[in-house]
Structure formats: C-alpha cells, structure tokens
Design a protein around this nucleic acid. Structure first.
Lengths: 136, 136
DNA sequence: CTTTTACCCTATAGATTTAGTAGGGTATTG
DNA sequence: CAATACCCTACTAAATCTATAGGGTAAAAG
C-alpha cells in the first residue's frame, strides 16, 4: 500500500509543477489546495528539500519551488525518497539490498524470482514517468 | 513491502508444487524445509484451504495438498488471498475499489494516473505467472 | 474402540510503522 | 523590529504485522 506521505508528496510536487511561474509557493497554499494536513506536509516538503528536489525561501513571500524542470524529475527519485525501496523484498532491491535470513539460495527462491520481475517492471515505469508527465 | 505471510505462503505452495506425487504433506515438514514458524504457517495454509487453493486431510498420513495443477494457479489468486489488493492505492483497485476522500477528481489525479500504470503492469505479471513457473 | 496423529480455531501480545500533533526555533523580508 | 513562513525535535494514537499460547476435533491405525 502506498503511504500517505508519498501520496501527499506527489500531489504537492505536481501542484508545484503546474505553476506557471517558478515563484515560491507557501506550504499553507498547497495544504489547502490539496487537502493535506499542513504540519504533515511540512515534514514531507522538508525531506524533498534536503534531497535536492525542492528549494525553499524563508520570510515574507517565501515558500517552496522546484529546483529542476518537471521533465527532469523521474518518479524513481520521488518514490525512493518518500516511499523507500521500490522492490517488494530486500533481496531484489537495487539500492537497499539485503540477503534473506530464511532463504538458503536466492537463485532457486520462487519469491525472489517473482518479485524480481515485478521490480524490473515497476522500475521501468517510474524511470520513464516524470513529474511533467503527471502534471498535464 | 511484501508481508512474511505472503512470502511464506508462496514458499509453501511452491514446496507442494515441487512434490512428485500429490500425496498430503504435513505442516511440520514444510515448516522445517522452508524455515517457517509452524504455527504461523498453519494459519497461512488454512486461509489457502478455505479459499479453494489447498485441500487437507486429517489424521495419520494427513497434511495439505494442491487442489489444482500448478500451471492452473496464477499468482493473482495467491497474492490477493494473502497480500490483499494488488493496487497500491484503493482508487485504482479492481477488486477492492474505494474512492479517495481527499481527491476531488480521479481523472485529474496524478497519483491515480501513475498507480494505474503500475497496477496494470503488475497485474499482467501475476496473471501470466503460475505456480508451475515458479517451481522449476 | 481407543490412541495417536495432525489439522482446526480463537485469543492475545510484542514490535514496528504510519500519520499525524505539539510546541517552539530561526532566518528573512518589509 | 515585527511579521511571516520555513525549520526542527519529540511525542503519541492507531493500525498492522508476526507471531505465540492453548487447546479442540476429525480421521486413521491397530
């Protein structure tokens, strides 16, 4: 199941991408427009800023804005930052690999086999979908 | 993340599918072979039995066995029984559809758009992968 | 017909994750 | 210097997961 954190994060990013101009947008504005708890949204935008997706400006007229063009932000980036690993099991994860304790041999493991297919496929979708694709 | 319930369930099913003969296999046998807590496995096999995937036989020489040929058991069935909805958000689920509360219009929603693609793709994989495919 | 085997069922509990809330701190702008 | 709006830490209620405990019941063997 997709966490609300990720869901809200995507909605907020799309909101920013849909802006005509790249001027900062206040948290409260996004929060109201997208029906998201302001404080919760604050923490989400913060992690996106810390990881180079968003920039921010303090003080009056401040807010958050995209650091890159929406077409240069693939969903892999967003998903990994907010949701974590794309793979459903650690033993098929590219960025968060871990061996299964209970599994004697990955190469014979049915779960590994199946989830590897799913990961490859899902990854392909996230790679080929950018923020721009979702903002139309 | 895939739950251990599903993971164990798949391993157990593959274990049964790999049997030469279709004679009942005891829980304790599967539990030891696959490194699964016996009591936990018991509850998993029970739900698979209640939903027509497995049959069981009581008493001496009893155990669990597949009701169909492995090639006639698609992973969609297994995943839905053990893991639940395949979609990552209820608003793109086929069998467990629910409208989002916070979302004014699904057709314009970026999350919906993205997750629909992922679901279509994942579903395709689960449909085209049977227990027999995982058992080789 | 009795004993053993092995499935069947309910309840509970510790650990972890999720989805926030509370409460303030700090930098910037006007 | 006062108002704005981002920045940060800590905590918590609720849900889910991963089992464990403790027996009950049907069926087969002898």
């Amino acid at each position: 199941m997709l966490s609300k954190k990720t869901k809200y994060g995507i909605k907020a990013l799309v909101h920013l991408a849909r802006q005509e101009e790249r001027t900062p947008v206040q948290i409260s504005t996004i929060s109201k427009a997208e029906n998201i708890s302001q404080k919760f949204l604050e923490s989400i935008l913060l992690t996106l800023r810390k990881n180079g997706v968003l920039g921010s400006k303090k003080g009056k007229g401040g807010g958050y804005y995209l650091l890159k063009d929406p077409k240069d932000i693939p969903m892999t980036t967003v998903m990994r930052l907010l949701e974590g690993p794309i793979a459903m099991v650690p033993c098929v994860s590219l960025n968060f690999y871990e061996k299964c304790e209970d599994c004697p041999d990955e190469k014979v493991c049915a779960v590994n086999k199946l989830m590897l297919k799913v990961r490859d496929n899902t990854l392909e979708i996230f790679r080929n979908t950018t923020l721009a694709d979702l903002s139309n």
